[in-house]
Nucleic acid binder design. Structure first.
Ligand code: MN
Ligand code: MN
Ligand code: ZN
Ligand code: ZN
Lengths: 117, 117
DNA sequence: GCCCTAAACCTGAATCATTCAAGTAAAGGA
DNA sequence: TCCTTTACTTGAATGATTCAGGTTTAGGGC
């Protein structure tokens, strides 16, 4: 939990590495188990942009969205455009019971953009 | 292309089966190759909700979104809530060059909902 | 302190979608 | 007809994640 909080949309192997530095030795499986439990408990949010392994973050329950760089894969938080929890109201829900919205903006981050004119 | 058009957010194995019925024999790899080419050409859209294999659709370029059922996995189209291409304007783009928005609403579809009170 | 159960954790193998590699057949233009 | 490109094939590899046990650890009740 501390490791995910300290990091920024980390993937599992990165979390694994970081947890190891913290406690000496942990198996990758233990990290998967822990993340899974924390996620089920609603303490961690899991996002998986296509092409990338899953990423975890501690910022949960506030319906925020993500900018993902197509070049370097960086994930950046972005607040919801329409206010509180507006993304939960599409024009026509087609009878769906909507629980959560998942919004990813794809583009190029400032760093990658400055390197490619 | 015809198979994807006729279907509705089909995954690759389903497309494979359907194409086979159409032409007798095709390898799965050929289907992957074809879908990849059509996607690169911008003729097909690819979505991959987490936990599910990739799905393809022919409705492209109109910035529409998707409802995904947590129970049965059904994918349903839903028009953009804010009009034309509004989802491309988050409050603060953090310097990102935004090209595309990917919105998935998670919930329970009418069918699954009626079966579970 | 001892016993017992539950939790935490480990190793190793399996899964599954997708991709890589390398080869063959077919087609088409020069 | 020759040469180059495209389409397609088979088989193996990849990589994230999960499954399936087995082993240690910890703590509460007696
Ligand atoms: Mn975030
Ligand atoms: Mn669609
Ligand atoms: Zn970048
Ligand atoms: Zn459903």
């Amino acid at each position: 939990m501390r490791t995910v909080r300290a990091g920024d949309h980390l993937d599992v192997v990165t979390i694994h590495r970081a947890v190891r530095e913290r406690v000496g030795h942990v198996s990758l499986q233990a990290v998967y188990d822990g993340l899974h439990a924390l996620h089920r408990a609603g303490l961690l949010r899991k996002i998986e942009p296509m092409g990338s392994p899953a990423r975890y973050e501690a910022r949960v329950g506030d319906n925020h969205h993500h900018l993902v760089c197509r070049m370097c894969g960086t994930v950046t938080d972005v607040d919801c455009a329409t206010g509180e929890a507006p993304c939960l109201d599409p024009v026509d829900a087609a009878g769906f019971l909507i629980e959560e919205a998942d919004v990813i903006y794809w583009g190029v981050c400032p760093d990658c953009h400055s390197q490619n004119p």
